[in-house]
């Protein structure tokens, strides 16, 4: 059994608990053991980044330092925002030794900066990809719009994940899980991110454009890998529909939920009951 470090992040412990649940269930199905970083803290997210850069770096650095201290070499970070913050932080520290020293002093821990930070697509691609198709028992036979958002692909030169515009990695995995990924126009457009509470109107508009394009092109589900995107597209659906003046009810699934269903996990095991937009598919498929 392959053992990897695991950083769930705050959302996966609260509002996106079904993401954590499905990540762990899929990992288990593929004989991967994810060990949570002991005593991890919040990465600081947009708030820290926007208000105080040094604080943002330090909060993320503490997580990296803890993982290193606990002997981890690879850490799985399912939340796209956390994945972005941790990867960017490690990059910034590695390119500036003086900064690394300063941050190390702030967090009172040494940091070497050589962790492999994997998002779920990278995790699946690296450890599961060649076994995925044979494990699929109930193909996810629906048209899906794979939505990547900002944080998985940008900044491209640091994250080095997939191609910048029209990325493909999620589409490929969904196809292997029996789904039919569609070509659409909003794969990497922003959903409104952290404005969910403070500027719900902005989220309704940006997420509305995304949901509408997916719906217009016949998607039966939107697949995501970011708790922020999921909650904006799912939990804010009433506001979205109000903005669009249209009732769109296509569900928003985490990629691990979709893959979990394909490899035979039950809807409950991957936490589908926790969604606001009910995950139901019409019978024609």
């Amino acid at each position: 059994m392959k053992k990897l470090g695991f950083y769930p992040g705050c959302s996966l412990k609260g509002s996106s608990s079904e993401y954590a649940q499905s990540v762990l269930a899929v990992a288990k199905a593929f004989d991967l053991e994810l060990t949570e970083i002991n005593d991890w803290n919040c990465c600081g997210a947009t708030a820290a980044h926007n208000m105080n850069k040094e604080l943002a770096l330090s909060l993320s650095a503490r997580i990296l330092a803890l993982a290193e201290k606990q002997g981890m070499t690879e850490v799985v970070v399912p939340c796209a925002a956390c994945y972005n913050r941790l990867t960017v932080t490690q990059h910034e520290l590695n390119k500036d030794e003086a900064l690394k020293q300063r941050v190390s002093d702030i967090i009172e821990m040494p940091i070497s900066g050589n962790l492999q930070i994997l998002n779920v697509m990278q995790l699946i691609d690296k450890y599961v990809a060649d076994r995925l198709e044979e494990k699929v028992t109930t193909p996810f036979g629906h048209k899906v719009a794979c939505y990547y958002g900002c944080l998985l692909v940008r900044p491209h030169n640091i994250l080095q994940f997939d191609r910048l515009e029209d990325p493909q990695s999620m589409d490929i995995l969904m196809k292997r899980s029996g789904a039919e990924p569609i070509a659409w126009g909003f794969k990497t457009e922003c959903c409104g991110a952290g404005f969910s509470v403070s500027r719900t109107d902005v989220v309704a508009k940006l997420s509305g454009n995304i949901v509408k394009d997916a719906a217009d092109r016949g998607a039966e589900a939107i697949i995501v890998a970011c708790p922020m995107c999921q909650s904006n597209l799912d939990m804010r659906r009433p506001q979205i529909n109000e903005y669009l003046k249209q009732k769109i009810d296509i569900p928003v699934l985490y990629i691990t939920q979709a893959i979990g269903l394909a490899v035979g996990l039950s809807p409950k095991e991957v936490g589908l009951q926790k969604h606001f937009v009910p995950v139901e598919f019409s019978e024609q498929h």
Partner: peptide, 22 residues
Amino acid sequence: RDIVAFHRAFLDSIKYTGRLYE
């Protein structure tokens, strides 16, 4: 101000518990 208030409330939350308490 709402946006900044949200950021500050967010940071306050993690300052005392280490993690976000929604």
